[in-house]
Design a protein around this nucleic acid. Structure first.
Lengths: 157, 157
DNA sequence: GTCGATTATCTCGATCGTCGAGAGAATAGC
DNA sequence: GCTATTCTCTCGACGATCGAGATAATCGAC
């Protein structure tokens, strides 16, 4: 029987290392963890064709509006993003990544992506299918512990 | 051909959710992320039979000695740890988790461990072996991006 | 035993990120 | 136009972190 605890430890270790990659990006570019999380969120949105607004970014990284303003001030001053008023709703501020920030992110995280993909080449489709099922199952199990109200199996009230 | 990018995304998603579990523990117990990381480190050391000192904890969570002092002040005031001088080397301060903190941690993270292990019961030994190999490979690839000096393939000085 | 060098931790002042409360600006409905 | 709503920003305060230096204990040499 394979040791289940060892696999759980491996998952945690992988998480720690993946965190360290973001940490490293932050150090190299003189940013803090929140700034990196925000850039990643903006980058992900850009990939999906969407542009984030200040408010949506605050919701995404769980920050107050005051903190988002300070965060965007830092990123803008460093030249990583631009703020522009939305033409349709001029209350909104839409965020766009600068080309240099986009390139820096692509180099850092794209390189990781490339290495991960290369490492996956050693696996058959069947094996990757097993891994995929495993990751989905584990994420589901973890998710049930990461939400505020787990079951709430109450009837009355 | 299985989509390699999807697997990379699943890994990231799993990481985010696992992070959220720690975040949730922090919120429930009125701690911040650093405090939780420190408690986990102390807990892990305790599991291995070792007792952490203030200095080793600082190295583990990458904090200055000044920050470690403040961190331990918070944890001690909250009743999560005790500080005692080492009998052999009285310069050292050894850290011990209180029973209540140990129980709280066991309940929170032990419950997750139980669910993960339960979810693994659906897999054959062969499948788990594949998953294990995959996790080790991916962690290795990620690790090469999380360290300050990646290759340094220079010959002369 | 006691002197200096070393190690481990703590104290102090300053900096930076975050928040709550409220202000400012634009929009939508009447 | 007026009011309510939405979105972002400003301000003052708090808390976590750091660098530099202080305090205390240990070790080795004499």
């Amino acid at each position: 029987m394979t040791d289940h605890r060892e696999l759980a430890l491996l998952l945690r270790r992988l998480t720690v290392e993946l965190d360290a990659v973001g940490q490293r990006f932050a150090e190299v570019h003189g940013l803090n963890r929140t700034d990196v999380r925000a850039l990643v969120a903006i980058m992900d949105a850009a990939r999906g064709g969407e542009s984030l607004t200040a408010g949506r970014l605050g919701a995404a990284v769980d920050l107050s509006s005051a903190s988002v303003t300070a965060l965007l001030d830092r990123l803008e001053k460093a030249g990583h993003i631009r703020r522009t008023r939305d033409a349709e709703d001029r209350r909104r501020v839409v965020l766009e990544m600068s080309d240099t920030a986009m390139a820096a992110g692509a180099e850092h995280f794209g390189g990781l992506q490339r290495d991960l993909t290369a490492a996956m080449a050693d696996y058959s489709d069947d094996e990757l299918a097993v891994v995929r099922r495993f990751l989905v199952d584990m994420t589901g199990a973890i998710e049930r512990h990461s939400r505020p109200e787990p079951p709430a199996t109450v009837v009355g009230c």
